[in-house]
């Protein structure tokens, strides 16, 4: 079966892209085969899934950067769990645009690197940096016959509110030029402070502006989720608590990508 591609993004930092893509990868891998791809040079998804923080040395020349330049991701896949693999990233991913230019690569370079593994997974989950750059645009430009989707992260702030239309523009651009199969899976709220009085106004504003696009599930940030980066998933006594909001989100995501997508 060909992999469905889900890219987590928004042009604002701190909206839980890495945590959300990491937990989604973990939850999906319970029943299906998942390849997580870190397209952010900060390597937070890499650290989150591997518990390795010395990413520059440990993953030296074994990252998504080399996978893209080689045009084949297979050599750069590392095993995380039974059904969960990862193509890691480290700080050297900053050199990607320059190297792409030097090597005459276009925005379909990630697509080419992933083609050899597209049939090996049910899901490809991609984390992106908060920027309009190759790192963000290439995942969105990656076509899959099973469908490519974007999850737009939103933290409830004004900065993120104004970043949404910009990210939707990137989705439109990628869809128009490279990936006609790209859809917006939805806008996912990941609230920093669930008690903030503006949250309700934000929900209403998003619903008015992008009707039907917002995920019904709202992620309320909690310490147990944050501690996953320290404690990991295995034998974690607070795992259920940490995943509380993500379990319904993943169910909703799966449901959404199986049906016709609302467009942002």
């Amino acid at each position: 079966m060909t992999a469905k591609i889900v890219t987590f993004g928004i042009s604002k930092g701190g909206c839980s892209k890495s945590i959300s893509s990491g937990i989604t990868s973990y939850l999906l891998s319970k029943k299906e085969r998942v390849l997580a791809i870190d397209m952010d040079g900060q390597g937070n998804l890499t650290s989150f899934l591997t518990s390795e923080y010395d990413i520059c040395n440990v993953f030296e020349k074994r990252t998504v950067l080399e996978a893209i330049l080689d045009g084949d991701a297979r050599k750069y896949i590392i095993k995380i769990a039974k059904n969960l693999d990862l193509v890691p990233a480290n700080d050297f991913l900053a050199t990607l645009p320059r190297l792409m230019y030097e090597n005459g690569l276009n925005l379909d370079a990630l697509q080419k690197a992933l083609e050899p593994v597209m049939e090996d997974y049910d899901w490809i989950i991609i984390d992106t940096p908060p920027a309009l750059s190759e790192h963000t645009v290439m995942p969105l430009s990656t076509y899959s016959s099973a469908g490519s989707y974007a999850v737009v992260m939103f933290d409830g702030s004004m900065f993120a509110y104004y970043a949404i239309p910009k990210f939707l523009e990137i989705i439109d651009g990628a869809k128009e030029r490279y990936n006609p199969n790209l859809g917006t899976a939805g806008i996912l709220f990941s609230l920093i402070d669930a008690r903030a009085k503006e949250n309700e106004i934000m929900e209403e504003s998003i619903d008015e502006e992008y009707p039907g696009v917002r995920f019904k599930t709202i992620i309320k940030r909690k310490a147990a989720t944050r501690r996953l980066a320290i404690t990991g998933f295995d034998e974690n006594p607070e795992l259920k608590n940490a995943l509380e909001y993500y379990i319904p989100f993943v169910k909703e995501l799966k449901k959404r990508v199986k049906q016709e997508q609302p467009q942002g």
């Binding site: 230019y101 005459g104 276009n106 925005l107 309009l132 750059s133 645009v137 910009k166 523009e169 990137i170 439109d172 651009g173 030029r177």
Partner: peptide, 18 residues
């Protein structure tokens, strides 16, 4: 043109240059 269009257009230029 907005930033997104400019970004994509820059790759069109690269194609032409290539």
């Amino acid at each position: 043109p907005n930033a997104t269009q400019t970004f994509f257009n820059s790759y069109d230029n690269v194609d032409v240059k290539k």
